[in-house]
């Protein structure tokens, strides 16, 4: 499948959610394009984390322990926001903090490896394992959790069985267009 075809068939593109009013608060509109709000905040947090990381390492001289504690402290807001359903602004902040937490997790792994290389500190090894475990399990769990929640919104929608529902109409049209293109019957030659 060509890149263009993949792009044509991509259901939500940068919005990552159906494009209907049910998901309006999950998106920012940037220059007329709907973009996933959660991702923007997450990537914003990651950028902030990348800026802070060298300061933490070279100026504040943090150890792998400090980075690990920072990771856990920043990460804790994610389950809170997922389960407590706070206002959208709080959720945005939590996503932003998750972005920083992800960079912090990377940092704690790097610092742990450096510590391990310098002296056989088994705590550093434990931090690596715990951080990786935390990253992969929470990612799998919360992705599934959010997917299920979003899926329920669709299932509870009157248009759920409508083949061209408001949220998917663009994607369905594009998919049909690809089908028509592959059939190639809309040509006219001079």
């Amino acid at each position: 499948m060509s890149r263009r075809e993949k792009w044509m068939l991509s259901p939500y593109r940068l919005a990552h959610h159906p494009l209907c009013k049910n998901f309006d608060d999950h998106m920012y509109i940037i220059r007329g394009h709907k973009v996933c709000r959660g991702c923007i905040n997450l990537y914003g947090g990651m950028i902030a984390g990348l800026i802070l990381a060298p300061i933490m390492v070279f100026v504040l001289k943090v150890t792998f322990w400090m980075a690990f504690v920072a990771t856990v402290s920043l990460f804790i807001f994610t389950p809170i926001s997922a389960f407590l359903e706070p206002p959208r602004l709080i959720k945005d902040i939590c996503r932003f903090l998750l972005g920083i937490a992800m960079i912090s997790a990377g940092l704690s792994i790097i610092l742990s490896i450096v510590t391990l290389a310098q002296a056989m500190n088994w705590w550093a090894f434990a931090v690596i394992l715990i951080t990786l475990f935390l990253y992969f399990t929470s990612r799998a769990y919360f992705t599934g959790f959010r997917n299920r929640k979003n899926e329920q919104v669709c299932r509870n929608c009157d248009q759920f069985y409508h083949p061209r529902c408001d949220g998917m109409v663009d994607a369905v049209d594009r998919a049909k267009a690809v089908e028509s293109f592959n059939k190639g019957d809309a040509f006219s030659e001079q």
Binding site: D170, K176, A177, V178, Q190
Partner: peptide
């Protein structure tokens, strides 16, 4: 005649882009 053909083809082009 030529314009009619080209308008058709431009229609086809937007059809294939899903811009109905």
């Amino acid at each position: 005649e030529g314009q009619a053909h080209t308008y058709s083809s431009l229609g086809g082009l937007h059809f294939y882009l899903g811009e109905y």
